[in-house]
Structures are given as C-alpha cells and as structure tokens.
Amino acid sequence: MLRKQTVYILLMIVALIGATGTSHADYVKANKQNSPVQFGLTAVVVRENLRFLNQWAHYLSEKLGHPVEFVRRKSYRDVMDLLDTGQIDFAWICGFPFVKKRDPEFIQLISVPVYAGKPLYHSFIIVHKDSPYQSIEDLEDKVFAFSDPESNSGFLFPQYLLAQQGKTPEGHFRQTFFTYNHAETIEAVAEQVANGGAVDSYIWEYLNDRRPELTEKTRIIKTSPAFGFPPLVARVGVDPWMVRRMKDVLLKMSDDPEGREFLSGLKLDGFGEPSPELFDSIRKMVAETRKALPWAAAAENRKNRLAGGKE
C-alpha cells in the first residue's frame, strides 16, 4: 500500500518536472505511446463540417508536434463519459456540464473561445417564422425541440424560463424531444416538426451565415442573458506538459495567419484565458431552477432516461 503510494507520488513528481521543462520525446516516453491525442467534440460546434475539422486537426497536430484526432459522439453525456473513463484527453463541452458538480473532478478548464469580442453567447428561443408565437408562454401545449439534455442554451435556459413560472417542460409543452444537435433543432423548427426550440446563439448565427435558407425559416422570440461560451477542457489525468502545450497552441492560434483562417472558419476571434467567474451565471441559473422546482432534477433525470441519453 505504502509502496503503491510512493510510486504514485514519484510519478507525480516526474509529471511536474515534465510540466516545467520536458519535451515531446519525454511525453511520448512517459506515456509509452505515440497514439493520437483524442479531442472530443460536442454539438457546441457544427460537427458535420468534416473537411474543415480534419484540416483543423491537422493544423493542431502540426503545432502540437503530436497527432490530434477529433472524436464525435451523439450527446454531451457521451463525451463526458469518454472524459470520465479516460478514453479522450480533451473536449469542447458546454457550460452546463462544466458547472455540474463531479466527485472526483475529472476535468480542468483550459480555454474559452472568444466570440464577437467576448467569451460569451446566448440561448435563442426560436419558432417558425410563419407561426404566431411571441413568447415561450404561447408555446403551451405545443411541440418543443431541445438540443441536448446537458446543453445550457438548448435545455437549461428554457427549463429555467419555465421554472420561473413554476412550470416544467412536460407540463407546459404537449410534446418535447431532443435533437442532440443545435443545427437539427433549427431544422426541426424550420420543418415545423417542433413549434419551438432552444438553440445556441453561436450555432444559429454560424448557420445564419452558412445556411441562411435554414435559419430564415425561423424567428427568435427570446434571447437569454449572456453566458460563458462553451469551454474547452482537459481530462485531469492528461500529462500536464501536453495540457500546457495544447493550451498554448490554442491561445496562439490568433497570432498566426493559418490559425486565424481556422478561427474565421469557426467564426471565432480566438481562444482566451478563462476567468473563473465566467460560468457563474450558469451556476446561478442551475441553482435557481433547482430551487424553484426541487423535484425538477429528479424529473429531468427520469426524462433523460426515457428520452434517450444513455440506456
């Protein structure tokens, strides 16, 4: 037992030394492998841009001096589980899962994207442009599309809005479903499968730029207050040298032309240093939702079980 602990401490020391002045060779040696760094992507970016994301992965690999691979999963929870089980090293997740309490904590914040000059975004409540609805109240007994049960903009915010009135989504809407993708939430509203939906303002504006024929069929009836932009995190167990290198590469993207090209492809200004209080508004919203509806968490969990998450 004591010996095991000693080995662990020794390893930690080695890791710390590595963090101060080790090289890629040391990293490879220490990890006894040259397998690619696994980088999880969620619906906070448009994951369907395969060619663009492959080129970006290639760029990151070159800057990092180590291969990088993007990993896509259907839901946020899938990606969180991959982080938890150590199958991926980095991930671009949402503010909502980030602020959730984990014990033990297995993620660490490395960067927050800067969008339109600020590391902030909003949640949009959208309806079909031809529909008469002006507020989420008008959508009573209608069909509503959420993006992901772990999405701040796509689920937490509308839930919070309803909780303010003492309502739950199940009680307010006739039917709800999750698309697990902000882009598809917009599609569901545009196709009128859902009467309303909640989406990430960054994704909506990104698509408004790239696929205006889709977004022009929708109308924004509610814009949330600003929230911290979906952050990039590293798994706690990842070699600190690699974490530092990744952070470095991301932060310096806006300094070189090639990096700026990828940033403009993502419609971002750059990747910035996170400030701890950035996600406080989300934390506050979670707390207020729970306070208004003490049983909401349980209901939410139950619903998540039924509506898809993980079986």
Binding site: V143, F177, F178, E184, A188, V193, A194, L306, G308, E311
Partner: peptide
Amino acid sequence: LRKDHWSLFKTLK
C-alpha cells in the same frame, strides 16, 4: 421506445 420523435421524423424524411 426512446420517444425520439426527431429521429423518427428524420427517418421518414
């Protein structure tokens, strides 16, 4: 079973 109406709709589409 999952009440995944969006997925059902996508299948039809």
